[in-house]
Amino acid sequence: MNKIAFAGFIAFVSSVLTLVSLHALSSDQYSTDAEDEHYTLEEVEEHNSADSCWKVIHGGVYDITDYISQHPTDEEVILEWCGRESTEGWDNKRPGVPHSARAAAELKEYRIGRLEGDEAQSTAPETQREESADDAGSPAADERLHRALLGLPLDGVYRGVFSDGGEMQVNVQFTVREGAIERLSYRYLAYRGEDYRRLESDHAAYPVWVQHEQIAERLEGKPLTAIFQLYEPERLIDDVDGYSGATLRGNKVLSAIRDGLNRGVYSWP
C-alpha cells in the first residue's frame, strides 16, 4: 500500500507539473506567433553564411544558425541555402522527398517571422492558423462577417442604449479612433430597477458589474470588430463561469454599442 500511495503521489505531481509546464511553454509559443515580424528578401539575403544563416521556407523566415551543426548531412548541403528562398530544398530532402513532420516541428523553433508580401503562402507547413471546429461559422469569430456588418465608422465619441421590456438597461459611451474602440464606459446599467453601478461588493449580482467593467477594460484599444466577441462573452472576460454563479448578457452591451454606431458620432474628438 505504501508503494502504491507513493507511486500515485509521484504520478499525480508529475501530471500536474506536465500540464502547467505545457501551458507555460505553449504561451511562449503564442507570444512569438503574436509578434510575427515581417522581413524583406533583401534582409534575408544578408544572412547567407554559417555565422548567420536565415532561410525562407513556405513564406516563413527561419534563423537556423544554431541548428547547422546538428543537421545530419554535411554542412555544405544546408549552407548552400542560407540567405535564400529555400522551400525547394525543404520540400526535396532527396528529390521528391520532403522533410519529415518531426523536422517541421523542429523547424518551428527557429522561426523568426515571415517574408513580407507572402501572407497567402505562409500557411504551410508551419503556421497553420488553428481554428477550432467551434469557431467555424461562429458569428463571434468571423472577421469577414464583422466587416460586412459594420461600415467603417468615423473617429469620434459615440453613445448608445439598449432598452427592453419597457425599460432602459444599458447606456454606453465610447470613443472610436482609427478603427479601435477606446474608453468604453457605462452611463447607465440596470436590470429591473437595480442600478448595477451602485451595488455593494457583497451583493449577489456584484460579479456581473465586475464583468461589465472587464468588458470595458478588455475592449480598450481593440479593433471595433472585437465587440462581436460579446456574443460569447467568455471569449473576452475570464470569469463568466460557475464559480460566482453570476451571468452576464454580453449581447445587451453589444446591442448598445451598435446602437451608438448606428446613431453616428455624438461629439467630435
Binding site: 502504491i4 500511495a5 500515485g8 503521489f9 504520478a11 499525480f12 501530471s15 500536474v16 500540464l19
Partner: peptide
C-alpha cells in the same frame, strides 16, 4: 489510502 488516491484522480481527471 483510498481517499488520498481518489483525491489525486479527482484533480488529474478534472485538469485533463
Amino acid at each position: 489510502f483510498a481517499s488520498f488516491m481518489l483525491v489525486m484522480v479527482h484533480v488529474t481527471a478534472l485538469g485533463l
